[in-house]
């Protein structure tokens, strides 16, 4: 590129060619997040290894991690958390893509109606799902009235069930509109001429979807599913109120250890919490890396700078 060509990209810049200004502008937000999130993690780590805290003699100890990793309960909970988060994220991703495509051609009223669950608090959704799906819930009553079941015992267990169907139903109900909103915005940003061009070059609608729309949608899909996975994996109240009674998900395990009367359990709780963070960070990194390699490099995440 000639110097001239490079300058061509210098748009009407309006005093924005100085990078120290950029750092100054992000400083407040960045320092607050670093202080709260990073500081919190740091303090949690110090507590988990016994260097800081209510109990212990202030010397370095990895006992909490040993206890956390040594219990079979941890591994069962991890399995359950992964099962719920992965299944729900995958399902809501696929369904959201479908819904976004369906909504693209529909009126604005439809997209708006589909987004109405977005601002609803999770706890409200939980209450609704409980009153809808529990053995004495509305659906059970409907089936009884229709004569399909003769007592509430006949209704399949859908909340606090071993398969966590209630939990996943809730997450799908809440996260599909969220993902759809994001995907729809990305979808609307894709120029329709591209699909027309593909069709003109001989692509069937199905090929057009796989070869053009989906690749263009991919960054949006990666981002949205990332947020949804991270959220579900770390969520507490939904599996706490709707999930199986045993095993429980990792966040609930952390909570139980944290509120244990035995104060020694507190460092175990923190160790568990840090493991939870570590696992989600690694999974996200793995996902980004597998995703395409592109976002991985662009974000300078991990090793390669």
């Amino acid at each position: 590129m000639t110097p001239a060509a490079r300058l061509k990209n210098a748009r009407w810049a309006g005093l924005r060619d100085v990078s120290w200004r950029a750092y100054l502008l992000v400083l407040p937000a960045l320092s607050l997040v670093l202080l709260l999130f990073g500081g919190g993690l740091g303090l949690a780590f110090l507590q988990s290894v016994g260097l800081l805290g209510l109990t212990g003699d202030g010397s370095l100890s990895l006992a909490a991690y040993g206890e956390a990793l040594g219990s079979s309960q941890f591994w069962r909970s991890l399995g359950l958390s992964l099962y719920i988060a992965l299944t729900t994220t995958a399902l809501s991703t696929v369904l959201s893509i479908g819904l976004a495509l369906l909504l693209r051609g529909a009126g604005r009223w439809a997209s708006f109606a589909c987004q109405l669950t977005l601002p609803i608090p999770h706890l409200v959704g939980i209450a609704g799902i409980l009153l809808l799906l529990s053995p004495s819930g509305l659906i059970s009553r409907l089936l009884y009235t229709l004569g399909w079941i003769s007592t509430d015992q006949d209704f399949p267990l859908l909340v606090n069930d071993p398969a966590n169907i209630g939990v996943m139903t809730h997450f799908l109900w809440k996260e599909i509109p969220f993902m759809t909103l994001i995907l729809l915005a990305v979808l609307r940003g894709i120029r329709p001429e591209l699909a027309m061009q593909a069709r003109a070059l001989g692509a069937s609608p199905w090929q057009c979807f796989w070869q053009v729309t989906l690749p263009l949608l991919q960054p949006g899909i990666v981002s949205a599913s990332l947020i949804v996975f991270g959220f579900i994996f770390g969520n507490f109240e939904v599996p706490f109120l709707l999930g199986s009674t045993y095993p429980r998900t990792l966040p609930i395990l952390v909570y139980q250890a944290f509120t244990n009367v035995d104060l020694n359990q507190r460092s175990v709780a923190i160790a568990l919490g840090l493991l939870l963070s570590l696992i989600s960070i690694s999974l996200i990194a793995l996902y980004l890396w597998l995703g395409s390699g592109q976002p991985f490099r662009r974000r300078n995440f991990g090793g390669q700078r």
Binding site: Q47, R266, G273, L276, S280
Partner: peptide, 16 residues
Amino acid sequence: LPIIVSPLATLMGIQF
């Protein structure tokens, strides 16, 4: 990070 990583560990640190 704060919106994709579980805040539990952070919370316990902040609470301290």
